[in-house]
Amino acid sequence: MVGTAVAFSPGHISGYFRRVEGSDPRTTGSVGAGVVIDEGVRATVVPAAKTGVRVIRQGRVSTGSPPVEYALDRLGVTARVTTECRLPIGAGFGLSAAALLATLTAVNHLFDLGLSVDEVASRAHEAEVVHRTGLGDVAASRSGGVVCRMGPGIHADIARFYPDEPLYAVSLGPLPTASVLSSEEAMARIASAYPDRCPRDIADFCFLSRQFAERSGLIAPDVRKVLSACDAAKIPASMTMLGNGVFAAGNSAERVLSGFGEVYRLNVARRGAYLIEMRP
């Protein structure tokens, strides 16, 4: 009898977005552009009498995840879930969505629920919207590439392209997504700052994202210092949305960002969430 399922989901860096308020979670979400990255979340799921979640990041362990617990409860299953990631949590890398997609992909196979990929994504998106941990990361991370989401929810049209050049990112600490998504003032600024077109390439993605970051008023002082250093070196860069960090492109990006913290080299993912293994 299979007793453990392991799955992985890529993360997602959002460059710019605009919230779309629907009548329910299925029609609520965002439009915008971002990059699905090869780093993300690995989830290991084991049946249990009561649901419990452990979150492991570089050896540090915390417990509990309301979105994951909510999603499992909605499915009527209980399990012991362990999520693991290398990137910092709450820093704009779409790890909440990745944890949900990885966990629900594993749960679907472990409990033989027979959910389609769309249904798994719908459940993950609902949990994100309900807990205000994200709006468009699930839709983006269903597959890879640089993405441009043209409607809310997981069924809207999404354009994708797959460049070979990497992005580099540095995190300056967490920025609680819910605090921004719950602010009507912040949402109004974000809506007016939104650049209403898709990016043509990585450089254009960085340009549009930076334009949005400046106009939205979301750039914190620490982020401004990093962006100024990138500007001085003529490196395309912007703020991770929503996170207290910076992503940049180009040959000198890693060197410049290294002056502000640990630098993460992030390749564009070629696929979305997938099952790694099932074992006894």
Rank of each mutant, 00 (worst) to 15 (best):
G3K: 13
A193T: 10
P199C: 11
I37A: 03
S9N: 02
R74Q: 15
Q211R: 15
L135A: 04
I202D: 12
L227I: 12
L257H: 01
A203G: 14
S30M: 11
A91I: 03
R142G: 15
R123N: 10
P280Y: 04
T51R: 01
T28N: 02
V170T: 12
V46I: 12
D222Q: 13
S23W: 09
V6W: 06
P236H: 06
F111D: 04
S143F: 12
G151D: 06
S14T: 15
M241P: 00
D112R: 13
L218T: 08
N267I: 00
V246N: 10
N267D: 15
G217N: 14
G134M: 05
T28S: 11
H131N: 14
T177C: 09
I219G: 03
H12T: 13
T44S: 15
S23N: 07
P67V: 03
R200I: 04
I276R: 09
G22W: 12
D201K: 04
R215C: 07
L135H: 05
R224N: 07
V223D: 05
L104E: 10
V223G: 10
F17K: 00
L227D: 05
L227A: 04
A159V: 13
Y264I: 06
V77W: 05
R210C: 10
I276L: 13
E84I: 02
K225S: 13
G92A: 12
N251Y: 09
S179Q: 13
A169I: 03
V129G: 09
D157F: 13
V77I: 08
G134T: 01
R270N: 00
P25V: 09
K225V: 08
T103F: 06
A43L: 13
V61T: 14
V147F: 01
P152Y: 05
P25D: 12
R224I: 01
L87F: 02
G3F: 07
L95N: 04
A79G: 07
D231Q: 14
A229Q: 10
E39K: 11
A220S: 10
Q58L: 06
D24F: 08
D204T: 05
D196H: 11
A43R: 04
M278H: 02
F17A: 01
A233Y: 00
P25H: 06
A237K: 00
T44Q: 09
A159F: 13
L257W: 04
S23R: 08
I219D: 12
E128I: 07
M150C: 14
M150E: 15
L266N: 04
P67I: 03
G29E: 13
R86L: 15
G114H: 08
R142Y: 11
R123W: 13
D73R: 15
F212P: 05
G259H: 08
A139D: 14
P166R: 01
L113E: 08
I37M: 01
E126V: 06
G134K: 01
V130W: 07
S122H: 11
S228W: 09
T28V: 02
A220V: 10
I158H: 10
V223N: 06
T28K: 03
D157V: 14
R270A: 00
I89S: 05
G243W: 00
V263E: 12
E165G: 04
A269K: 03
A124Y: 03
A178H: 11
D118P: 03
G52H: 14
L208C: 10
E128G: 07
E262V: 05
A121Y: 00
T44F: 06
I235Y: 08
M187A: 04
G243Y: 00
H155G: 01
